[in-house]
Design a binder for these strands. Structure first.
Lengths: 208, 208
DNA sequence: AGAAGAATCTGAACACTGTCAAGATGGAGT
DNA sequence: ACTCCATCTTGACAGTGTTCAGATTCTTCT
């Protein structure tokens, strides 16, 4: 445990960034439940009360981490779009694969992003980051249904959007909460996902 | 705050049941985050250390509540079966409606059931209760695919099962975490669910 | 009936947690 | 040089889960 240098203790300089980094490290190493203001402060080498000035509360700090999470998710969805090429259905399917890939690669981050009681849902930057990721999905559905870029979704298209989102979100959530371990058997959850997810997405998009 | 009667304080008699009841009440009133050993003990009119003897830890107490939750979920799925009548696809669809109905009717309970870090996942009774609910889904899928009652699911049937489970689970989870509030608009999430869920399930089961 | 033993619950303690108020510190601008 | 202000620390408070020794009561055996 490296204690901070005795001199230059005050005015860390980039404490805000350091705290976010520390929080993400804890999240990756020990999961959502280990997220603690004091642990983050310890890791950044500052006093327990230091974060208050920058984030107001633990909720504020976690919200910042969630914002970064939604930005990373949006990138993953965009990468799925790229993999999908010109075929709208393939783009939607690859977005779904990207969604699950993101969740399994960053379990803590993903679970935090959807723990509304730990976040400040009124934070405008959080709303914006979430909305940006959502828009990628919405546009993909519009493309599948050959709707203009600014059209509001009819009921059937909304149903497709919700089916796509719910399916990948539910799949990821069930996998992260260990509900698929029994199904996966000896091969492990990772192999199960690799095997079943594409088949599931294909079945889902069969009628479109 | 009614303090417990000064006499007859010792040997509550049914403390185990009383604590589970208190926990469920807290869960219904204030959600998962408010679940606290001391709060449950207070509500049952007993000292903070009392629950330890019956449940070992907070995890143990919450696991008991989750077990009851899985039992109630199984009942809801069975009710869906009944609504579905003789049509296997209708039975599967009604199970899905039952799943979401359960989640929205008991948000705290549902969220707790899928918070693996708060539960003792090795508890055999928890495993059994979860497995019983899962088997209802599995059997419904078998019926749709006209498989014998004890057949192991092939890849395609597994994909259908995962699609069905993931879709309703994801839908419910997204709704409970407030992710659908933006989509729901002025009508409210409840109305949105009523409107979109059947259409989503129809689209999901179109090819079967 | 009476006593021994087991089950149940209390009280006090410990190490944690988030948050707050008051004060110390150092950098930036005049 | 001096002031102002953002930044960080110290110390405190109430609340948490859990443990342990002991008090209390129920059960069972003789």
């Amino acid at each position: 445990m490296p204690r901070r240098r005795p001199s230059r203790a005050y005015h860390h300089g980039q404490l805000r960034e350091a705290l976010i980094e520390a929080t993400e490290a804890i999240l990756a190493e020990s999961g959502v439940e280990a997220l603690t203001l004091r642990a983050a402060a310890r890791r950044a080498g500052v006093s327990p009360a230091a974060p208050a000035h920058h984030f107001g509360s633990l909720q504020g700090l976690l919200t910042e981490v969630a914002i970064l999470g939604f930005q990373a998710l949006a990138e993953e969805l965009a990468a799925g779009n790229a993999r999908g090429g010109d075929d709208p259905v393939a783009r939607l399917r690859e977005q779904g694969i990207g969604y699950v890939r993101f969740a399994l690669a960053h379990p803590g981050r993903f679970l935090l992003m959807f723990r509304h009681e730990r976040l400040d849902r009124e934070n405008p930057r959080l709303k914006e980051a979430g909305g940006r990721a959502f828009k990628l999905l919405e546009d993909a559905v519009r493309a599948v249904r050959t709707l203009p870029a600014d059209a509001t979704l009819d009921r059937s298209s909304t149903a497709l959007l919700m089916l796509a989102w719910s399916a990948v979100h539910g799949f990821a959530h069930l996998a992260l909460e260990g509900q698929l371990d029994g199904l996966a058997g000896r091969a492990g959850t990772g192999a199960f996902v690799q095997d079943v997810l594409p088949a599931m997405l294909r079945a889902m998009l069969a009628g479109n």
